[in-house]
Design a protein around this nucleic acid. Structure first.
Lengths: 151, 151
DNA sequence: TGGGGGTAGTTAGCTGAGCTAACTAACAGA
DNA sequence: TCTGTTAGTTAGCTCAGCTAACTACCCCCA
């Protein structure tokens, strides 16, 4: 095996998993600090993001996308609705389902909130070399795949 | 600039930050599922880990290490103490400070809980190529650095 | 055609994690 | 000694996550 691909010591799955776990905790804690300015918490921002970029969905689909139970998503959406960022309307043809749509204000706030939140991280990331940034970009893609259990 | 180091489209800090943010949310949500079995939540596990591997500390130092406010750490430690995983004793020479030490049971549970939690991720990671695993390992190190704001 | 079983969402009620503000206790130094 | 600072806790809030149980509804089939 070529040296540049040989696994370094500590590259076994458990060790990597452990480090990633810890890194993810600390990363999110840091980002949470930016919440206050936008009034959008991480789960709300994440859910709103799905609605804005993925288009209107139902609550159940949103819960599945966010890997959360329906009651949890009910509350998140209620919060977003209370703030006028999404609207809920019953789906014609199936009165059980609720179609959740982003309002213009929601779409706008998503951009602003996300920008604010990402600014902190981005400014930290700005100190990295291009190669390191590229590494993190690839890692993020990998992590999304791993998080969905679809490797 | 050589092709292998040229940044890919979307490698600007904001985009990478955005992806990492989302990936971290989803990763932790997945790992949280493993909490039930161990009875240790992510923050408790993380704090206990600092105490076990870093040795006895004070509450304030622990809060700083975990990037959390003192009252939050007070509660986390209270939970750990209630479960007999750490003990608190006042520091001789400064009656204000509390020395927090892991109990043997705490050290043992840390190993077990961490193993259980990491197992899920590790089994997901096991499907990755060695090079991908190595990439994630390097990413984790980078992220820790970034999260501490010490690039 | 009218039940019955499954599905979508909500409500109720709990735990835990995070925060600020305000407090107590103790230290340190002028 | 008195004043300011530091360590930690308490009180009280919000939000996010869960399960259990409920309502309302759809669909299928006898």
């Amino acid at each position: 095996m070529p040296a540049r691909k040989r696994a370094a010591a500590g590259d076994d799955p458990s060790t990597v998993a452990d480090r990633l776990h810890s890194a993810a905790i600390h990363l999110l804690r840091r980002l949470r600090r930016e919440d206050d300015a936008s009034g959008l918490s991480a789960p709300r921002l994440s859910a709103l993001s799905v609605v804005v970029f993925g288009g209107p969905t139902t609550l159940g689909a949103l819960a599945a996308a966010e890997q959360v139970r329906p009651p949890t998503m009910t509350r998140v959406v209620q919060g977003l609705e209370r703030d006028g960022l999404v609207k809920r309307e019953s789906v014609e043809g199936d009165a059980r389902s609720m179609r959740i749509t982003a309002t213009p204000r929601g779409a706008r706030l998503l951009g602003e909130g996300r920008a604010r939140r990402v600014k902190r991280l981005a400014s930290d990331l700005a100190g990295l070399k291009a190669a390191e940034l590229h590494l993190l970009a690839r890692a993020a893609v990998l992590l999304e795949r791993v998080s969905r259990g679809t490797p």
